[in-house]
Design a protein around this nucleic acid. Structure first.
Lengths: 163, 163
DNA sequence: TTGACTGCAAAGGATTTGCAATCAC
DNA sequence: GTGATTGCAAATCCTTTGCAGTCAA
């Protein structure tokens, strides 16, 4: 399944990055541009290691620690959010609009989705009692199409990497 | 703030554990009982390290790897679920009923809450397209009461441990 | 030119594993 | 009694850090 982010969205994200970097007085290096471009163009929320391996194809000297440093820097700039749960390592998301996640418990696939009814929901009082609220997100877990076709049921298989 | 799980719920959870262990042919050791009791009696989703430190007070010879092994074993039995996001280490939850989470982005506090309207929501078609769904959970992020009182605003402080 | 950034290598922290001793059943 | 479980220590995996050389502005 090939899925690429819409061209105009990618362009917009790249411009946002350049503007934010300039504003923050941060240099736009080849490495940073490649890393951001990769995430901004992904629908599957890659982790540091996946990003590293993909970028290395075009940029063989890049190092994993640069990937990590860039990821956190981009998060600090507000251009990325980190996602991910439980056994998985951290993964990143360049979609800053209100959206929700579908996560496959077998292979770790994560997909964004939006839904008007969910977006219209307000934060319930039961949550408000704990403090001020910043974001509201639905996490749906299930088994993705691919995994439904494959293995009937694995034993206590530990979740695999990003996909 | 002292919060303890309702006595009857704790008792029920312990019985579930014993029944599940027996059914699975797994031995009920002191360590396992203590670990499960601690989590089953928590509202704050402790992580492995916190569990280890607390149990060690009553059981000084326990080792961290036993805590880990027990935690995953309990998850495999379906008695616990793991929760936690991004920068945090894994934390555990013995509340298997439908519920949602409030997470403080400053201190990492996590609290369960329930809400009839949310529970009544069905999985939207936008999510169903990705596969079969198993759970539906709302994750609300915000700043908890305690943190609202404290620090006005920290820099890019990395999140702290469980609380 | 020059401070910010990178790559390297080494450190750090969380989690897992091999193995002999021990315990629950 | 005996196989499952524990505690220990060492290993592993992911992520971070110190530092000297390099690059974007």
């Amino acid at each position: 399944m090939i899925m690429i982010v819409d061209k105009s969205i990618l362009k917009q994200r790249l411009e946002d990055f350049k503007a934010a970097a300039k504003k923050a007085g941060i240099k736009i290096t080849h490495q940073r541009l490649e890393i951001f471009r990769l995430i901004a163009n992904s629908v599957n929320h890659p982790g540091a290691d996946e990003i590293f391996r993909k970028i290395r194809r075009r940029m063989p000297t890049i190092s994993l620690d640069t990937v990590y440093r860039t990821l956190w820097m981009l998060s600090d700039l507000g251009l990325l959010k980190s996602v991910g749960q439980s056994k998985e390592t951290i993964r990143f998301d360049a979609n800053l609009h209100q959206h929700h996640h579908f996560t496959c418990i077998r292979c770790g696939l994560i997909r964004d989705f939006t839904n008007p009814e969910l977006d219209a929901m307000s934060v319930p009082p039961e949550a408000k009692q704990y403090g001020s609220t910043l974001s509201f997100q639905v996490e749906i877990k299930g088994v993705c199409e691919d995994c439904l076709k494959k293995q009937p049921k694995t034993k206590t298989a530990k979740q695999t990497k990003s996909k």
